[in-house]
Design a protein around this nucleic acid. Structure first.
Lengths: 387, 387
DNA sequence: ATGAAACGGGAATGCGCTTTCCCACTACTA
DNA sequence: TAGTAGTGGGAAAGCGCATTCCCGTTTCAT
């Protein structure tokens, strides 16, 4: 018992397949009411479901949106995925998922697979890699994307432009103000913390991480502070946990003895640890606590992303809110044309008030005045420490 | 500049499309080495990417796995999605995502859409609804699934069987021992908590929630405790937060005055709140804290699922570990045939030691000895309270 | 009343690929 | 040497649908 076809429906309704096709889909030609009714009824009777493959083949448009993420279980990506999914739904499209672990080679594979499926659009989330060993794969990825675009595809990129990719028609970049927001976060933290800073970041060459680290360092410099030491590790909870273990030792050894401890200078001796994302920050906290240290008594922790499920964490992380779901929406909308008149699209905010020396020049890099994303620093003044 | 076709490759290589097809895909007929080389080179030169739609149409198998979830940003579902994705990758398939918010009508739509795309398999995660008003939609869903299966599709269902769905060949159920594990959790909690219990659950008729509530109540009864009051709300953080607000008042009003408070009887006056999932539990905690209450001083909180990003929450939730990623894997594998000899598949553990009165009879319901899932209670003995 | 224009419907072609069927040719065995 | 099995390749028929023509009818303006 195979699925019924349009031809069968047509035969049952006593019309030609062409007519059946016209009534069952939104064709511009509208058959007569009597005929329409018969066809619709026949379709109902047979439980007809159009073969999307055949449709796609015939009109070379698949109704598919490809989404590329590092890891769908990472709350950062799943939040973006929700945004993508939501606009896909409004457009009657489906989203095809590919997870790559961040490997450019896998991303290239995914793009090829999406191209093979004639996806109408591809959304790439997740940091680029600028590591030398990934350069070749990045070039291949760029080439693959170029080809996809030349064949009429649209791609929306979240974060950073893909190095080596041409600026052809189909490219749409949703920039994330990682550097700017990290800059601002550093500035605000520097105001309430007089002690030392340490940065826990992802592996060198992970652009998102590097951007945030760079911004943070610049923010410190701008506040007249010396650069923070950087610990590079993996860009996830495990990495944060590992770094936290190292830092715990260090904190303990540099701590004043229990007797001489004075709440008044706690702030000076205390470390402020900036983790390049919230999940890492949580890992840091877990490790520190496991070593018997207490937050915020022994260290101040800041993260990035403002992950939803982590907002109820206590003491609350200082972090930076990124509207992840909207970012996903924007990236998807940008591929659908007409995005600039959409109300969801706002101009990118200047996130570095009163500071021009960062070298980025104009804040909005988008030549085409494309969608911009605004974030927000969420500072937690958990300066008081619990003994 | 359109994408190149197989015919073009064939022409460039000086062979027929048939031959080109044979060399570029794993056909059973292997053309001569010279020819193969020419074709492969021509394909390379043209940057040929096979049109998956056309392939799917021709061999009526799409290489697609459909995944239906309530909300991809919910960590419960994104963990399952990761599992699905991982086995999809090993099978060289792609996963198509549909989010439904739990509405059976939307789930039916999703199944139809997947069927239209000729998905090789469909995995449905997310609780069923047993509410009367959803009955019609459930029946429709079952019918749609039945049809899909009769047409050769395979479906893997996570959690509960879909009411009204026939037990045809393609059906595979990955049962979750929600009731059993909640039973056990209640038993263990009853051992360390002498006070009252309250249950915060999802809306009545949400089967997963109902199962967990029922199991918990039975566990309490088995421990000689009176049934807990049940607060029904939405099955997410917001619901937990709302319920937490109500409970806060109640806790405060029933609390002994500050002066007469005696740590010795804290355990008796304290409430133990079981939230039907971790995210709700976090919501409860957030609300209680906002009302000035402290955990675990003023209340004990337990959850369910053991969500990864929530494991570092302090004080740690008592919860139940469900191997979500593996559940996703199992559900996907079950649709691929041969799952029962797979090493990942273990028999379902009996999670109700020494207790036979629950009425479920044999613990393993799977007639076909299909895959089973084992969970684990994670009790947190945070009985000491911080003043 | 007669022409053009609009309309409702069907036949046929093609989307890009797989697969069956068929043919020519080689390499055996008897 | 003749007959047969095996082998590498091509021609062609779809897979299920959209769409372009094309044709017969009706409607309207002239």
């Amino acid at each position: 018992m195979a699925a019924s076809t349009l031809t069968e429906v047509a035969r049952l309704a006593g019309v030609s397949p062409a007519t059946a096709s016209r009534v069952l889909n939104g064709s511009d030609r509208k058959p007569g009411p009597g005929v329409s009714e018969r066809v619709r009824q026949a379709a109902e009777e047979l439980g007809y479901i159009p073969n999307a493959q055949a449709q796609a083949l015939a009109k070379s448009s698949s109704g598919l949106i490809g989404l590329i993420v590092h890891d769908i279980a990472d709350p950062y990506f799943s939040a973006i995925a929700r945004g993508v999914q939501s606009v896909a739904k409004t457009q009657n499209k489906m989203v095809l998922l590919a997870t790559t672990g961040g490997t450019p080679a896998d991303e290239k594979e995914a793009v090829a697979a999406f191209a093979a499926r004639r996806a109408d659009a591809i959304v790439i989330a997740g940091s680029r890699s600028s590591r030398p060993e990934d350069q070749k794969a990045n070039t291949d990825l760029a080439a693959e994307l170029d080809r996809y675009c030349r064949n009429g595809g649209h791609v929306g990129i979240v974060g950073q432009a893909i190095v080596g990719a041409g600026t052809s028609e189909g490219y749409h970049l949703v920039e994330l103000p990682n550097e700017e927001l990290a800059f601002e976060l550093a500035g605000q933290l520097a105001q309430l913390h007089t002690g030392e800073f340490v940065i826990v970041g992802g592996p060198e060459g992970l652009v998102t991480s590097d951007d945030r680290i760079r911004g943070f360092q610049k923010g410190l410099a701008n506040a007249g502070r010396s650069p923070a030491e950087v610990v590079n590790t993996s860009f996830n909870r495990a990495g944060g946990y590992e770094a936290g273990g190292q830092l715990a030792e260090r904190i303990r050894s540099s701590q004043p003895s229990e007797e001489s401890r004075d709440p008044a200078d706690a702030n000076k001796s205390r470390l402020c640890i900036f983790a390049a994302n919230d999940v890492m920050a949580i890992g840091v906290v877990a490790a520190l606590r496991e070593e018997g240290l207490r937050i915020p008594r022994d260290a101040l922790i800041a993260g990035f992303d403002d992950i939803e499920t982590l907002r109820d964490f206590r003491p609350a992380l200082s972090t930076v809110r990124l509207p992840l779901e909207e970012i996903g929406r924007l990236a998807t909308l940008s591929t659908a044309g007409h995005s600039r008149k959409d109300s969801l699209v706002r101009s990118k905010a200047a996130n570095m008030p009163g500071h021009q020396s960062m070298g980025t020049g104009a804040v909005n890099h988008n030549e085409d005045q494309g969608p911009g994303v605004t974030g927000e620093v969420k500072l937690r003044r958990s300066t008081q420490w619990t003994p």
